[in-house]
Design a protein around this nucleic acid. Structure first.
Lengths: 208, 208
DNA sequence: CACGAGACTGAACGCTCGTTCAGTCTATAT
DNA sequence: ATATAGACTGAACGAGCGTTCAGTCTCGTG
């Protein structure tokens, strides 16, 4: 959390307490938002789950939208924290990309609900907040783009460098598809067979 | 519209008038929903744009959610009406698929706003309505699947028949990506170059 | 012309929900 | 022990919104 977060003014003075309470608020709100959506969740419900009164809740935020922002930020940083360390760059570009796809797709599987929620409620955010979320998504794309570019440079991948960006988007979207179209895909695939099918396809395209 | 639509009871007797007015309601609501989202659009606003009073509006629907359903149904049938006729099956499977991708992707470009809206508000629909929308999406996938299967049978495409379904999903999702990630893609691609890049990639995969 | 059915109107109702604030509790300092 | 700052409480406020309904208008029919 934290640095990247646009300052939200509060009544409470103690900085550490603010961080602590906000984390509790987010934890309480995430589940409700994912389950019922932002608009159908009331501040009272959040407060009850948070274990404190509405009044107290409002000591740590200004508006309901602040909670949405905190939740979106939390989800995105959770993604980041989980992918980045898993993405070790090895000399073998094929292996690196395979590993990156594997971790990213598995993470999507774990965080399906969060991902769908993010896409559905982004619109409800203010313009600034939305831009921040997009930036986070773009950073993720750049990681894949860099791996591809390395592979092109060392001769592992045979595509035009101009297409590396598009290819990175494709990788991500085909992963996100697992979350958005589970109703259709999970009839025929398990997570493992899905990753297998998509990554062999993607890799063979790159190396052909 | 019509047949597939779950019956919504009304006060008004004249069947044709109901159809006419509902079409007017949908036309008025679509723009507002796309622009501001379902929850932030008020029934009053719709009525004003519809050019009649709230009371009259409520002679043709029961609840606000009925409007959402009418709008979602309208968008989806618009899609269907536009794609199906354009999808002529020719003896040349490669050409057929290329044509199908081209029309589908162009349609997505035209209906970007509607598509994004559908994904974002699906959750607000009742369970039955949601199932109906999913079915429409699945039918679209099956069209692509059939084209691919024909191509496999006549020897144009060299992939395993078990993967035809997944491939059909990939085609659709990569098209929808144009709508969902325009903020990133439209910096580097125009619609034409995007279709070109994706379809040559997809086709070369199938025929390799 | 009189009448009534059906379409239309919009003020009013009632409920929900975000937000506030006057007041209570707690813990530390004097 | 007393005072005070800071955290917490939840009833109350008020705006907004979906929905209704008593009443008006219109037009075809007897």
């Amino acid at each position: 959390m934290g640095k990247s977060l646009k300052k939200i003014e509060t009544q409470v003075k103690d900085k550490d307490l603010i961080e602590l309470r906000r984390m509790e608020i987010v934890k309480a709100a995430v589940d409700l938002f994912v389950q019922k959506g932002f608009h159908k969740t009331t501040v009272r419900e959040i407060a009850r789950k948070f274990g404190m009164s509405v009044g107290t809740l409002y000591e740590y935020i200004r508006t309901k939208e602040d909670i949405l922002y905190l939740v979106c930020d939390y989800i995105h940083t959770s993604f980041g924290q989980r992918v980045r360390p898993a993405l070790e760059i090895t000399p073998d570009s094929v292996k690196t990309l395979n590993g990156a796809i594997d971790t990213y797709y598995r993470m999507i599987d774990e965080m399906q609900d969060y991902l769908v929620f993010l896409y559905q409620e982004t619109k409800s955010l203010s313009h600034d907040a939305r831009k921040y979320i997009f930036k986070a998504e773009e950073e993720m794309t750049e990681i894949f783009e860099e791996i591809i570019n390395r592979g092109i440079e060392d001769g592992s991948f045979k595509i035009d460098k101009a297409e590396a960006g598009l290819f990175a988007h494709n990788i991500m979207v085909l992963g996100q598809m697992w979350a958005f179209r589970r109703w259709a895909l999970q009839k025929h695939y398990t997570l493992d067979t899905y990753i297998e099918a998509q990554s062999t396809r993607l890799l063979s395209e790159l190396t052909s």
